[in-house]
Design a protein around this nucleic acid. Sequence first.
DNA 1: TTATGGTTTAACCATTTGGTTAACAAAGAT
DNA 2: ATCTTTGTTAACCAAATGGTTAAACCATAA
Lengths: 204, 204
Amino acid sequence: MAKTKKNHDTEGQILAAAENVFQKKGMDGARMQEIADAAGINKAMLHYYYRSKQLLFEAVFTNAFSLLAPQLNKILNDDSAIEDKVKNFTNNYISFIIKHPYLPNFIIQELNRNPKFFEKIQQNAAFPTLEKFKNQVAEEVEKEILKPINGEQLFINIISLNIFPFVATPLIKGFLKIDDKGFKQMMEQRKTAVSEFIINSIKK
Amino acid sequence: MAKTKKNHDTEGQILAAAENVFQKKGMDGARMQEIADAAGINKAMLHYYYRSKQLLFEAVFTNAFSLLAPQLNKILNDDSAIEDKVKNFTNNYISFIIKHPYLPNFIIQELNRNPKFFEKIQQNAAFPTLEKFKNQVAEEVEKEILKPINGEQLFINIISLNIFPFVATPLIKGFLKIDDKGFKQMMEQRKTAVSEFIINSIKK
DNA sequence: TTATGGTTTAACCATTTGGTTAACAAAGAT
DNA sequence: ATCTTTGTTAACCAAATGGTTAAACCATAA
């Protein structure tokens, strides 16, 4: 807040509006005019503050990923046992995504459109790595806490189970013949159902 | 083949080119000119055969879904036991998607863009329903073949584990630091790893 | 008060894009 | 052979879109 002169945090308003529009419509579907309208300002301001659609988009994209990264670190770089991490992560992540429903699909979609964006998010300070998690799985398998399983496959399984329903929401709603309310209930159930499902499978 | 007059299956060439472009770039990112170029014909032909971008897109979309639907029916409407179906489906589905890598993301993305498209695919003759699967799960739980689990949640889990990696390929490649070849290997592993993971979790 | 410099706007511009048209080509039908 | 229908093309068009500009605005320092 409290920028110089008469600037009523226009830059922030633009970013907020751009987040909304880009996350719902993607880079290709978004229109600069629509973002300006959503922010309640003149279209020229978008260029004044962010130069181009591309740069505005990148601001939104890196911002979005920096919200997601700490969530992933909860499963990858926390010190507790795998079982506890799975329980915590699943519960937390689903709560988190219910508040930011467009986030995962946005990131995945734009990464598909331009895989080079991955480099951009890798520069993020909190960028998560798999090393620790892989070692920990191997260790707990060794100690016979877990059944034999490949750490990478387990990681894929965990994020698949947690993220996919939020990426494929319309598909799930369609097959299950449920509305928004039913979907939310189903996702609430998953906060425990998913971790149970995983633990059941891997715990010795 | 063998259409009337000098038509060298132009309509088919257009559809094939449109599939390529739409599936990679989506409705918003695709350009009619690019489709025409990919088909090696004049842009006006696209309109001659399909009237508009929207209609061409819908032809591609329903076509894509009609490829996917039979796959889903293997898990939903086959007569074998859940365990066998999970094994079969996982193996088959992953093989299938390796051949059509853009398919799941395309369908999910466009369904997110316009959830009303779900109605379009519901008209498909082979449109899969959950009823049988749900009953079967309840039955096998009753008979104590399976641990207690909600059929809908199990369905979500199965498709999440199978589909997600192909939707989030760049993300997976990035985190696991693998290239195309490594990714394919990982997916080959999953043909058995995923079904084992599921069976481990649900079998009593 | 006035000069200064960041902020904001309406109007404008060049390009892209989906779509149309009119002329032409090729193959039956007569 | 010529007429008619279908297929194909180059040129064109209007609307949309990202981006620019020149002028106006306005808070503040001198």
